[in-house]
Amino acid sequence: MASLEPTADVKTPKPAGAGQAAPASGAEVPCVSIADPVMRLRGVSVYYQSRQALHDITLDFPRKQVTAVIGPSGCGKSTLLRCLNRMNDLIDGVRLVGEVLLDGEDIYGPDVDVIELRRRVGMVFQRAAPFPKSIYENVAYGLRICGVRRRSILDECVEQSLRRAGLWEEVKDRLGRSALELSGGQHQRLCIARAIAVNPEIILMDEPCSELDPRSTARIEDLIAELRRQYTIIIVTHNMQQAARVSDYTAFLYEGELIEFGPTRQLFTRPQRQETDDYITGRFG
């Protein structure tokens, strides 16, 4: 693939001594056990060329819950997220060790259909970039590439997706107009509608609000709250207030290692680890 450079949050090389600041390997990671995990990471390490971006992550994502991944810039949040739908495959020189299980099946296994995987695990990006097509075609895109041609199915699905994304009332009269005419906040909701349209099991959100104004951010957060019971949502954010507001579970990543994972309320009120406490109280990061 051309022009896909490693993401910004893995560009910072890690100094050799930095590992010592983080908990020594082998230290017990406070990690709640999840009753019904949909996605499980088992000892996942990710390397960009020779640089290690994630260190031996073991983590379960609960089904139909919102899980926030927090941590300072460059800690590997986005890399972790992009492992979950194999988006990292698009970048040259990325290597993954360990297992990522979706409903018990390794998504990096030899006979996994990546296309199928990405339909089950949708993604919303930091920079909302609708396709240069009409609003309707943007939402219908995922269905069209699966081969859905029936107008009635497309119409119904577009409307439903736009309704769920809270955009229907605003755009129902101009579905044929270019999506690029919408505002930034509407773009992001359109991208969410686009992801919902293919009916994924999991929606990954990579800092979906970092380029939005507070009002648009509030709308997206409301939307996440509405979607939480239908989809498993994994959201990466560097905004701890946001994580606290929208998520059921929170994972804290620091320098490519999982420091702590637990129910959000517990992690923010009674963190088990000193590093977590330092981060959420703003002593570093």
Partner: peptide, 13 residues
């Protein structure tokens, strides 16, 4: 922009 490609791939294209 790269997001265009990724947006498409993320939808299973």
């Amino acid at each position: 922009p790269r997001v265009m490609r990724e947006g498409s791939y993320a939808l299973g294209a």
